[in-house]
Structures are given as structure tokens and as C-alpha cells.
């Protein structure tokens, strides 16, 4: 086990692909604590975090053959974890704590949709105003905007 501590993530993934269970244990001891810190800061039941950690590492083992050698292991593990956290929240949506969380998503979603609409309207206004300009002036404007050329 000792020698695994000094290996890089890439080397560990390489060993994992060759069914090295010690490499697997080293990956666990490197990232499980980070992942449980992440899940428990989002979920209200530590048992749910346990399920997720269990799932994520079982998945890592099952998919080991398909892992690319140059995989960013940490990002991969966090991505798997994030999907499972959202899944847990989704399944527990009737719990008051999660209902409150989802409500705040409704708020931010509402805001961004409004912003998108506003941005679209603005783009339209610019478009129609441009059509009123002479073709040459319009071209100058478009070049300055889109090609970052100076007006002078």
C-alpha cells in the first residue's frame, strides 16, 4: 500500500484499469473524505451521503476498463457525486428542507429566464436600429462589435 501514496492520479487510474484493488483503496482514501464533505454539506441525512459514496466508488470500479488514461479523476468523481446529490434531492423533494432548496432554484431560474428574454429583446432592438443605418455605417458598427476592430 505504502508506495501507492506517492503515485499520481493518472498512475492510479492506469493501475485501476489493470484491476489493482490497492490502487482502488488509495483513490478511496484520497477522495472519499472530500466527497462526503461535499455531499453532507448538501444533504440533510448522513445515510444518504453513505449511499452516494458507496454508489460512486462501486461505479468507479465497474467502469474502470472504460476510463481514459488521461481522465481528470477528481472531476470525474465529483461529477458522479453531483448527479447523485441532485437525484437524492429530487427523490426527497417532499421533505421540507429540500422543498425550501428547490424553491430557491425556482427563484434563480425565474430570474435567468427573465434576463434571457430581456437580452433577446435588446438584441432585436439593436438589429432593427441597425437596419435604419446606411450599409457602410452598419458594416463599421458590426466590425467594431463582432471583429473587435476600432472605429477610427
Amino acid at each position: 500500500m505504502e508506495k501507492y501514496v506517492t503515485l499520481t492520479d493518472l498512475q492510479l487510474v492506469d493501475l485501476l484499469k489493470k484491476d489493482d484493488s490497492d490502487a482502488f483503496s488509495e483513490i478511496y482514501s484520497r477522495y472519499a473524505v472530500l466527497l462526503v464533505g461535499f455531499t453532507s454539506s448538501k444533504l440533510f441525512d448522513l445515510e444518504d451521503s453513505r449511499d452516494i459514496i458507496h454508489d460512486v466508488f462501486v461505479k468507479l470500479w465497474q467502469e474502470r476498463k472504460q476510463l481514459k488514461v488521461d481522465y481528470d479523476l477528481k472531476a470525474y468523481l465529483f461529477k458522479l457525486t453531483r448527479y447523485r446529490i441532485v437525484d437524492k434531492i429530487r427523490k426527497n423533494i417532499t421533505r421540507q428542507e429540500y422543498a425550501a432548496m428547490v424553491n430557491s432554484l425556482a427563484v434563480s431560474y425565474g430570474v435567468t429566464t427573465e434576463q434571457e428574454i430581456a437580452a433577446k429583446e435588446l438584441a432585436q432592438i439593436i438589429e432593427t436600429s441597425l437596419d435604419k443605418l446606411s450599409p457602410r455605417v452598419k458594416e463599421v458598427y458590426l466590425l467594431s462589435r463582432e471583429e473587435n476592430l476600432s472605429i477610427t
Binding site: L43, L46, R50, L105, S108, Y109
Partner: peptide, 28 residues
Amino acid sequence: LVERWLEENGNRNQVWQSLDQSDKDQWL
């Protein structure tokens, strides 16, 4: 959007944080 929302929300009073190191090791 979902990821930013997840970033900003969650459980402040985590049981995990309140465990001491040996409990955490045992759990892991």
C-alpha cells in the same frame, strides 16, 4: 444553473462536520 444553485444551497448544520477525526475515519 443547477450547479450554481447546488453550490449556493444546502445543509449548514452538518452531522459530518461535528464528528471528530476518529469517528470520520471509522465511518469511511
